Amino acid sequence: MTTPILYSLRQCPYAMRARLGILHAQQVVELRDIDMNNKPQEMLSISPKGTVPVLELNKGSIIDESIEIMVWALTQSDPSNLLYSHDQNQLPMMLELIENNDITFVGALQKYRAASRYHDDNETECRDMCCEWLREIEQRLSQHAYIMGKTPSLVDYAILPFIRQFSRVDKKWYAQAPFPYLRGWLVNHYNDPTFSKAMVGYPKWSINSDPVLFG
């Protein structure tokens, strides 16, 4: 079987998810960082919606949803037990929490970022909407080091890119916000070499590029 191909974009939070999942699963892929203003036909031909990440496993077999890529990778290998295989009830709970993040928090985060960028009067209101969801995460982190328990799980790495975005909208406010456990959790991730590796930038891919192996 040929090496899977991952179409990616370093600063995209969904693509960041895929990178983190692949790294933690110790899988190797050919990484193709793309220019979203000049999307390669090779990607569009297998995933016409034109968003990243896209994982091509082999001809005709693709995964183009970030969480599905993470679960696929960790199903191949999960040395840190991010899927909590010791408890079969955990994965459905994780996926439900991630879906809630993607619907409730990400929607509010997009409004908050836009309000901050354009100095809208409703910036505080949008931030408060984010905080409603974050209070549950803070409460969980007040009980143990990670969102689901004492060790990291799929959830931690799935929501990490979005918490990172939230923390950067208004850094001064975030530094004194009532989320001390969340801040500590985020700093721990920043200090993790795996996160640094996921954030490495690569030249934009073209048909003439040399293969970049990642994982």
Rank of each mutant, 00 (worst) to 15 (best):
W185Q: 07
Q27P: 04
I34S: 01
M1Y: 12
P4C: 08
I207A: 15
A198T: 00
D170F: 07
I159Y: 13
V71Q: 13
L20T: 01
S209D: 08
P92H: 00
Q90K: 15
R127M: 08
P92A: 03
T75C: 13
P180V: 09
S196M: 07
V200C: 03
D192K: 04
V187P: 00
V71C: 08
K197F: 04
L57R: 03
Y181S: 02
P203G: 01
P178N: 14
M70F: 01
S206F: 04
Q11I: 06
V155S: 06
V212D: 03
N101F: 14
R117N: 12
Q139I: 02
D121R: 09
A175G: 00
M43G: 01
D192C: 10
I34M: 00
P211Y: 06
Q165G: 04
I103H: 12
P180C: 11
T151M: 10
K150T: 11
Q27G: 02
Y112H: 13
F105S: 09
C131K: 04
E96R: 13
M199R: 06
I147P: 00
G21R: 01
N208F: 11
Q26L: 07
E125P: 05
G60L: 08
L44V: 13
G215K: 02
D128Q: 15
E56R: 15
F162H: 13
V200R: 10
Q110V: 10
E125V: 10
M70H: 01
V29Y: 02
E42M: 11
N208C: 05
S116V: 11
I69T: 00
F214G: 02
Y118W: 13
P152H: 06
D121I: 07
Q139V: 09
Y146H: 15
T151K: 13
A158T: 03
N122L: 04
L154D: 03
S142H: 04
V155D: 00
Y118K: 11
R19M: 09
P4V: 10
R117P: 02
I69A: 01
E123W: 06
L74R: 02
L109W: 05
P13H: 04
K150V: 02
W205S: 08
Y84M: 12
Q11V: 11
R135Y: 13
Q76H: 13
F195V: 14
